[in-house]
């Protein structure tokens, strides 16, 4: 535009600024990223780092004050039987919830991807994402209503004359309780319910990406529908399921609301963290406890990344 810019008396300040920035792309990058990185890098990562740091301090048992000296004592406390139980309980719950979510999510994802019309897909997608984004707490609360002794489930069992069965289920030691809403069943159901959409969306996305022609190619090469399903569809959907499992697993590991509202009194990691940093004032132990899900999640993310789950997010 040499001819035109020379016709103007002097290019505007904005224009000159734009040209200056054009010649200094690195500066643009710095300008764009400065504030966000300050936020995420300093506020967020800084806090995480500070927390990690505190896990290497310990609480003086006599004074109840935090001793700011490097020690691994707090981590040693993690390995007491009671604490190990909590960690194992949380991990087992996270794994069971993840598997249940995967099993429930697959059929509906498959239906959405393969059979729903294009308007149907939109409707299904919205139907699944609405609960995903909305009112975690209210959704947990709804299970309190449903699972209460006098609530819907109890009523159904009564109506069907199956009360003895319900009582037998509740009588199972360690996972049972006085009613469904104060038992591991309740915890489990609420977890599955709350995180299910997190599993459906990536599974559906992965399935949706499998082109129809690929399934036709499989059939054309002589595969029966079951074979196509096991050998083509499932392997291609797996990264999506793994991506979903990152959420279901991680969210379950760190949650303290659901076991509090709907559990028997067995503790989960999240609750310990809450109690230790709150009423007990033992920030080092709380910090050490948060390291557990972090470590588990980093290992999980590493494996998931290897399996190609991030492309499916």
């Amino acid at each position: 535009m040499a001819s035109i810019s020379s016709a103007e008396p002097s290019p505007s300040f904005v224009r000159r600024l734009s040209t200056f920035l054009h010649k200094h792309p690195a500066l643009v990058l710095i300008l764009l990223l400065a504030v966000p990185l300050l936020w995420l890098g300093v506020i967020y990562l800084g806090s995480l780092g500070a927390l990690l740091l505190q896990s290497f301090f310990k609480l003086d048992d006599f004074t109840g004050l935090v001793v700011r000296e490097f020690t691994l004592d707090t981590y040693r406390q993690l390995f007491t039987q009671a604490n190990l139980d909590i960690i194992i309980r949380s991990a087992v719950m996270a794994a069971t919830v993840t598997i249940a979510c995967a099993l429930l999510a697959f059929p509906i994802s498959f239906y959405m991807a393969r059979y729903a019309s294009s308007t149907g897909k939109v409707a299904f997608y919205i139907a699944v994402t609405l609960p995903l984004w909305s009112s975690y707490l209210v959704r947990v609360y709804s299970w309190k209503l449903i699972l209460a002794k006098e609530g819907v489930i109890g009523w159904i069992f009564q109506a069907l004359g199956l009360e003895p069965l319900l009582n037998a289920i509740l009588a199972v030691p360690t996972i049972g309780g006085p009613s469904l809403s104060v038992s591991m069943y309740g915890t489990f159901l609420a977890f599955v319910y709350v995180w299910l959409p997190y599993m459906i969306i990536p599974t559906y996305t992965a399935l949706e990406r499998v082109p129809r022609s690929m399934l036709e190619a499989s059939a054309d090469l002589g595969a029966r529908p079951q074979q196509t399903f096991w050998r083509v569809i499932l392997p291609l959907a797996l990264p999506g399921v793994i991506a979903g499992s990152i959420f279901t697993f991680s969210l379950t590991l760190g949650d303290y609301i659901i076991p509090g509202v709907l559990g028997n009194s067995a503790f989960f990691i999240g609750q310990v963290v809450l109690v230790q940093q709150g009423t007990a004032g033992n920030i080092p132990l709380a910090a050490a406890f948060t390291v557990v899900p972090m470590v588990i999640m980093f290992i999980y993310l590493f494996i998931a990344g290897r399996l190609g789950a991030f492309e499916a997010l």
């Binding site: 990223l33 990185l37 995420l40 890098g41 506020i43 967020y44 990562l45 800084g46 806090s47 995480l48 500070a50 927390l51 505190q54 990152i246 959420f247 991680s250 969210l251 590991l253 760190g254 949650d255 303290y256 999240g270 963290v273 809450l274 940093q277 920030i283 709380a286 910090a287 948060t290 899900p293 972090m294 999640m297 993310l301």
Partner: peptide, 25 residues
């Protein structure tokens, strides 16, 4: 940076919560 952006929702919310709380403290 992409990973850093994702981290606050990939890690359990309680970690974000207690980190911030102890940092404020």
């Amino acid at each position: 940076i992409t990973f850093l952006v994702l981290l606050p929702i990939a890690l359990p919310g309680i970690i974000t919560g207690i980190s911030l709380r102890s940092a404020f403290g």
